[in-house]
Each structure stands twice: as structure tokens, then as C-alpha cells.
């Protein structure tokens, strides 16, 4: 490796590591005295009921969003690739809209639209919020899955499966899905990260998700907030790891195969 490469690498690493280290040092100071060094802030977070409650809400919301999105988008994109390739650019364009429309505009619009929807939907994070997050996740889902479908020969695989006697659903589950697994996994990661960190929509629709809790602590407790930030960082990574493990378990070999191609 050349010297300049090393320098750039160190600079890049510093850019990521310094804030983490600084936050870490800050989180070790006592909330009462402001002196180093104590793990009390971490204890405070871990023993805080609001923390666990909000993490649980956000994580379940993320899972729900992932499941709903995959159920909607996998069959849709499959069908578009197979039968309606001319619709693909249209959907790609639609997928850009959640990028272009600011979340604040989106949430106001959604609140208006769903104002008269039933209480179980409108007043629950599992209803309204997950619906909003499915929209938010749409571009990530679409572009990941689209790339996955383009990497396989959808037509030939489908026809081969059909000629062997498989119905559409069997073909989708047994043949297509295992071969777009890594794309689906990537889409799920992105969705998880979005949902775990989404603030605007949750705040305006008044649901107590994890980012809302972080914000609350930030405003009231300086040093524990730093501990919380680091913990949330760790939690998000742990969640992704969990997803990876779950996603790879059944198709471990196929994931390896896909990786080897």
C-alpha cells in the first residue's frame, strides 16, 4: 500500500472513530458531578423502562414494515419483470417520490388522508406508522429487489419451474425467492435502519418510538444521552446482525452460492 493510501485510510477512519470516541468519553462522566469516570449513565439507560419500551416498538415496527414490504414488493416486481417489463420505468419513477417529497410534507398529507380511518389503524403505530414506513421503504425495496431480479434469468427459471409442474406460488417461493435472497436481505437491512432512526413522521404523529425517546433524553439529560447514543448504535448493528443470521439460516448454502457468482 502506498503512503498516500495509508494517510487517506487513517483520515477516513478518524472521521468515523473520533466522534464515537468523544461520545464514549463524554458518556463516562457522572451526571451529577460531571467528572470521569463512571458507568452509571449506562446503568441509567439500561434500567430505564422508557428505553426498552421504545426500542421494542421501533424494532417490531421495523419487522412489520419489512414483512409487509416484502409481501407487497417481491411478487409485484417479479410480475413486472416477467409480464410487464414496460411498467418497470414507471415503477422506478414512482419509487423516487418518497425521496423527493420531504417527510414533513408526507406526514401531513398522510395524516389528512387517514384522518377518518378506524381508530385501531390511526391511533396505533402498527397501523398508521407502519403504513407510512412502507412508503418510506419503497425506494430501497424497489431498487434492491430490482437489481436482484435483474441478476437472474426470471423468464427461463419460471418457465423451467412451470414445465416441471409448479404453480405460480410454488415457483415464487421455491425457485425465485431463494435466488433473490441476498437482494431481499439488503432491502430488509435498509428498511430496518430507516425505521429504527425515523424521527419526523413518528414525532408529528405522536408515537413513542426509539428516536423520540433519544430526543427526549437529549433535551433533559446530557451525559446519559451520550451513553444512549452509543447503545442505540450498538442496538442497530445487533439488529442487523440478527437479521443476517435469520436470513442466512435457511438458505445458508444458497447465500454462499449467490456470493460466489
Amino acid at each position: 500500500m502506498s503512503l498516500s493510501a495509508v494517510v487517506w485510510l487513517v483520515l477516513g477512519a478518524a472521521y468515523f472513530v473520533i466522534p464515537l470516541v468523544a461520545t464514549f468519553l463524554f458518556s463516562l462522566k457522572s451526571n451529577q458531578t460531571g467528572k470521569c469516570c463512571t458507568a452509571a449513565n449506562y446503568g441509567w439507560v439500561i434500567h430505564n423502562g422508557g428505553f426498552w419500551h421504545s426500542v421494542k416498538i421501533s424494532f417490531l415496527l421495523a419487522l412489520e414494515t419489512i414483512v409487509i414490504s416484502l409481501l407487497i414488493f417481491v411478487p409485484t416486481i417479479y410480475w413486472v419483470h416477467l409480464k410487464l417489463p414496460r411498467l418497470r420505468p414507471v415503477i422506478a419513477f414512482l419509487a423516487l417520490i418518497p425521496f423527493v417529497v420531504p417527510p414533513i410534507v408526507m406526514v401531513v398529507g398522510l395524516l389528512q388522508v387517514f384522518k377518518s380511518s378506524p381508530h385501531w389503524f390511526y391511533a396505533q403505530p402498527w397501523g398508521f406508522l407502519s403504513a407510512a414506513y412502507v412508503i418510506l421503504a419503497f425506494p430501497y425495496m424497489f431498487f434492491s429487489l430490482d437489481a436482484g431480479f435483474r441478476a437472474i434469468d426470471v423468464h427461463t427459471l419460471t418457465e423451467a419451474s412451470q414445465s416441471l409442474g409448479a404453480r405460480w406460488t410454488t415457483t415464487l417461493v421455491k425457485v425465485i425467492l431463494p435466488n433473490i435472497r441476498s437482494a431481499a436481505l439488503a432491502a430488509s437491512f435498509l428498511t430496518l435502519a430507516i425505521v429504527m432512526g425515523e424521527f419526523t413522521i413518528a414525532n408529528l404523529s405522536a408515537f413513542h418510538t426509539f428516536p423520540i425517546f433519544i430526543q427526549l433524553v437529549n433535551e433533559t439529560q446530557g451525559f446519559p444521552a451520550a451513553a444512549l447514543t452509543l447503545l442505540s448504535f450498538g442496538i442497530t448493528w445487533a439488529a442487523m446482525l440478527a437479521l443476517l443470521v435469520v436470513g442466512r439460516k435457511r438458505g445458508a448454502r444458497s447465500a454462499v452460492v449467490a456470493g460466489a457468482r
Binding site: 427461463t156 427459471l157 423451467a160 412451470q162 414445465s163 409442474g165 438458505g251 448454502r253 449467490a258
Partner: peptide, 27 residues
């Protein structure tokens, strides 16, 4: 097509990539 009992061999790339040779034949 799934009720016709026609065996089809394509030009290429028709094997299911996630299955072994045995699993492909078994499908």
C-alpha cells in the same frame, strides 16, 4: 404449462442456481 407434462430443455441458464444437480432433478 404446469399441467402439460412436457419436459423442456432450454438453451442455457435454466438450472435453479440455489439447488444442487440432485435437487434440480428432484424438483
Amino acid at each position: 404449462p404446469n399441467r402439460r407434462d412436457m419436459g423442456m430443455v432450454f438453451q442455457a441458464y435454466s438450472l435453479f442456481p440455489n439447488m444442487t444437480a440432485r435437487q434440480n432433478v428432484e424438483f
